[in-house]
Every structure is written in C-alpha cells, then in structure tokens.
Design a protein around this nucleic acid. Structure first.
Lengths: 202, 202
DNA sequence: GACAGTCTGGCAGCGACTGTCAAACGTGAT
DNA sequence: ATCACGTTTGACAGTCGCTGCCAGACTGTC
C-alpha cells in the first residue's frame, strides 16, 4: 500500500515491479508457445510452470485461470470497448458506435499473425471458446447502459432491445472472425463484419 | 447390441431399461432439487450421488458431465431446431424459418414454471452459461448448411453471412429470455423475441 | 443351472484450482 | 552494513470434476 514514485509514464521504479513484469511476460510467452505447439488442452499448468521456471502456485497468482494465459489481457478488450463507445458523438447511432468499438478492439492486436493465431486457437478449442463467450457476456452486460441511452425509448423493454443489438454486433464479429480464420487471414475482418451486418440488417 | 422387442412406442421391455430409466430420473430430480436449493456451484457430484443413492461412477455413466444434470436433454433442442427448420417451406425466408425453429424449441418445456427455473439457473450461473453457450455454438454450426441454402448467394462469403444471421437469431432469443426471467416470467417470450428482432432489423 | 453380456461400485489417478504457512527476498530506516 | 518490516514465493495438502480399470453383482438366454 505504498505510493511509489512512478515518474509519470516511465518504467516501473521498484525492482519488484520489474521482476513481476518479467516473470509475467515469461509465463505468457511460454504458455502461448506451448499452446500453439501442442494444443491448449494438451498443455498442463505444471508444464508451463516448469518451463517458465516458476511454481504452479505463483503462476496462479499471476493469472487466475488457465484461459487467462492466452495473453493480451482480454480484460483490456472490455475496457477499450467501453471507452471507445462512450467517446462516440452523442448523435451517432447505436450501430455506428458499436462498429467503432469493434474496430478499436481489433486494432489492439500486435500483429496480424498474432491475431490470427489467437483467433485460431479460440475457434478450435472448445474449452477456450466457452470461457471466452462467458467473458464476452460480461462485456455485453457492461455495455448495456451505454447503448440503452443511445436508443429511442419507444415501447418499453429497452433492456431487451439493447441486449439484442449488442449481441447482434458480437454475433457479426464472431461470424467475421471465424470466416477470417477459415480464410487464413486473407482480407480484412472489418470488411467481413460489414458484410455480415448488411446480411442481417439487409 | 441386441435388438430387443420394443412394442412400437410402448414402455421399454427389459428390466434393465426400466431400472435405468428409474435411476436416471432419480438422479435428475435430486440434482435439480439441490441446484435450486443451494446453487449449482455449491452442489457437488458427491452430494448428488449420495442423495440419489448411486455411486459417483454410475452417475457419470448416466450423465457425462455435471451440466448434463440440468435435464431436459438439451441435445434434443438441437434436433428439434434442425427438424423444424428443414420442414419449413422452401419459399420461407431465413428469418421465418429461424423464428419457427425458436418457437418449436420454446414449446418443448414441460411447463412455464420449469422453463423459468431452468432459464433462471442458466442466466445466473456463470459456469453453466459457458457450457450452454458452447453447446449452442454446435447447434449453430449444424444449422449452417440449412440456412445457407435459403440465402440468396450474391457476393460470396455465404458462410459468414449465414453464421451472422443464425447467431443474430440466437442473440435475440437470449435477450428475450433474459428479459423474461428478469420479469419473473411475465409475458410471452416469443413476443419479446419479435420485439428484439424489430429493434435489430428495424 | 451354466454361460455370456451388462451394469455397478470402489479405488486410484489426472488436471485445474485454492488455502495455508514458513522461508526467501526487496525495501527503507538506522 | 544491518535490522525490522512487508511482500512474494514455493511447497504441501486438499477440493472438485472427471476418467480408467477391475472385480463382483446382476439380468437374460440356452
């Protein structure tokens, strides 16, 4: 609970923080490597911990669950989504706002290859998909008030409608990314997203 | 691998089958009772097995996983969905076909109360939701060819578009059922579904 | 009644995950 | 340099979902 000097945005000051960051990175890279090498389900926590040079207990202290080892800090996705959408001009419709959010999240990946690898892992591993979907549900719930205020309150049941709209956006993102992976990363995801939207809202 | 006489649709002939059915029912009822009494995550397999009077091993032989104990045989949902949709007239649009499928699945519940209880459990338990979503993904995949043939092949990427359309239907069902649960079962789910659809495709 | 085919329970084991506790370590003050 | 303090770590044991294996009990057939 100490308030360490942080020199604005500079590197973390204390040795602890640096060590922490290093260990975290090491674990993450080891995990991603093993996942892509031998699959998610076939990789055990024990193996990751061993190869990363930490104990299982420590690994679980850094990342609360195995699926968090996919990296990228998916929690950041939710944050970026919310931030981007709330920054949209007030007169922007729900669909424009959601599109902007989706685009911002997609832009978060380091590289095309990394994004492709992650999506591939995600779409091909049942246990991962489940966890991811669950996390996404939380995002949707958080987005609810933001979207609700942008919808014209007409007949009541705004909750239901806003939920449906948000879930539809995610559905299109899903369809787009799945197709993108199936095409080995050819083309632009946002283009596919727009196509899906057109098909739905035709 | 024997072909036992089954007297058409009559009761199962052999004692084994009857015993099996009885045990299965006993387990199912015990599980559902405990789940609603003390929550899904707080109920252990050991407890269900003990109170149902079977061994854990046997329980897992009847139901392959804990989430299968929610009953109703959710696998049947997928079957009914596909059957209903493929039975729709060829000139029916994708949205009509999907709507018919959703309605058919909703009509599968024994009673309003049971449906409400199941939905409530589903929407309030993270671990359950994840499993359910994953199962639904499989339904969506199975539905893909059925829907694809009903769409006008225009610009390519039919896969993506069909996926998006299917996922949107499910999204609306989700929003509808969630709102329905929030309203303690007041109103009709299909009415909410239509409202959601209108909001999305407005 | 003997035989074959099923079903069951018990046990050991795996993997993800958590609580606990003593030991190792960075940190700031002396 | 040293000391006390709080943090971090690793090891251990334990829980829970789930599976493989095996011996024994049961059902149905001849």
């Amino acid at each position: 609970m100490k308030q360490e000097a942080k020199s604005a945005t500079g590197a973390p000051t204390t040795l602890w923080d640096r060590t922490r960051q290093l260990a975290s990175q090491e674990i993450l890279e080891t995990a991603l490597r093993l996942f892509t090498e031998q699959g998610y389900d076939e990789t055990t926590i024990a193996q990751i911990a061993r190869e990363a040079g930490v104990s299982q207990r420590t690994l679980f202290r850094y990342f609360g669950a195995k699926e968090d080892l996919l990296g990228g800090g998916q929690d950041r996705f939710g944050q970026v989504l919310m931030d981007t959408i709330s920054e949209q001009p007030a007169d922007a419709g729900v669909w424009e706002a959601l599109r902007a959010g989706v685009a911002a999240v997609l832009a978060l990946h380091d590289s095309r290859e990394q994004a492709l690898e992650r999506f591939r892992l995600l779409h091909n591993t049942a246990s991962l998909r489940a966890g991811w979907l669950e996390k996404r549900l939380r995002f949707q719930e958080n987005l609810l008030p933001l979207i609700e205020t942008r919808m014209d309150a007409a007949t009541g049941n705004e909750g239901a409608k806003a939920r449906a709209v948000i879930a539809t956006a995610f559905a299109c993102l899903d369809a787009a990314s799945m197709t993108w992976v199936a095409n080995d990363g050819k083309g632009e995801i946002m283009g596919l997203y727009d196509e899906c939207m057109a098909a739905v809202r035709g």
